[in-house]
């Protein structure tokens, strides 16, 4: 025989538990933190800190200088044996897709190293040559200020952990910063069709 108070208590726990699970998973759409971040960025594009960077040719530029153009950004370290290769290939194939004509599109590419200690200008240059990158439309860049790097990684939500072999494991994503300078999308580098669609949308100036 059911006791008094059983059904209300059970209903309360079921409703509360379901509500908390729904809240934690964005209504059962995101079960990983990367998925959650993707949803959040698409819902509310993020404003970014204006940081100073230096590219593979030693030229200084500001992140805010890209306003008016769309820029695809990835975060790399040049000694990376794994995902950075995929990210580099993605960008290289994207430049092929627009016929090597990045200058005539409204699209720029930017690879930012989060390992400025090891990645000096020479290292950035070598990394760029490996994938056929040419500044200013595909820059391989580093920050010159530790605080700038920290602010940048925080704004993009990039998580970096040691790989146990002197390198890093890091969030691998292609970030789309729109012409207003806001972080508008976070794409999966393992699904190139999605990326290339984004690149093609930018083909028209």
């Amino acid at each position: 025989m059911m006791t008094r108070g059983f059904l209300p208590l059970l209903a309360l726990i079921l409703a509360g538990g379901a509500a908390v699970l729904a809240w934690e998973t964005d209504n059962f759409r995101a079960f990983t933190s990367t998925g959650a971040q993707q949803l959040e960025i698409e819902r509310t594009p993020r404003t970014l800190p204006d940081v100073q960077l230096v590219d593979q040719d030693g030229r200084a530029f500001a992140l805010s200088g890209y306003k008016g153009r769309t820029v695809l950004i990835d975060f790399i370290f040049t000694r990376c044996p794994t995902v950075c290769g995929i990210l580099g290939d993605d960008f290289a194939r994207m430049t092929d897709l627009v016929g090597g004509q990045l200058p005539s599109t409204a699209l720029d590419l930017l690879s930012i190293s989060f390992d400025p200690q090891n990645d000096d200008r020479e290292a950035l240059k070598r990394y760029g040559e490996r994938f056929g990158a040419a500044a200013p439309h595909w820059r391989i860049a580093r920050t010159t200020d530790r605080n700038d790097l920290a602010a940048l990684l925080k704004a993009f939500g990039v998580v970096i952990i040691p790989d146990g072999m002197g390198g890093f494991i890091h969030t691998s994503a292609v970030y789309v910063v729109d012409s207003h300078g806001r972080l508008a999308q976070m794409l999966d580098p393992e699904t190139p069709p999605q990326l290339f669609a984004a690149a093609l949308r930018m083909r028209a100036p």
């Binding site: 059911m2 008094r4 059983f6 208590l9 509360g16 538990g17 379901a18």
Partner: peptide, 14 residues
Amino acid sequence: ADWLGIPGIVLVVF
């Protein structure tokens, strides 16, 4: 109210 321990165990599952 915790009849047969059901509400409690549901909380545990959640």
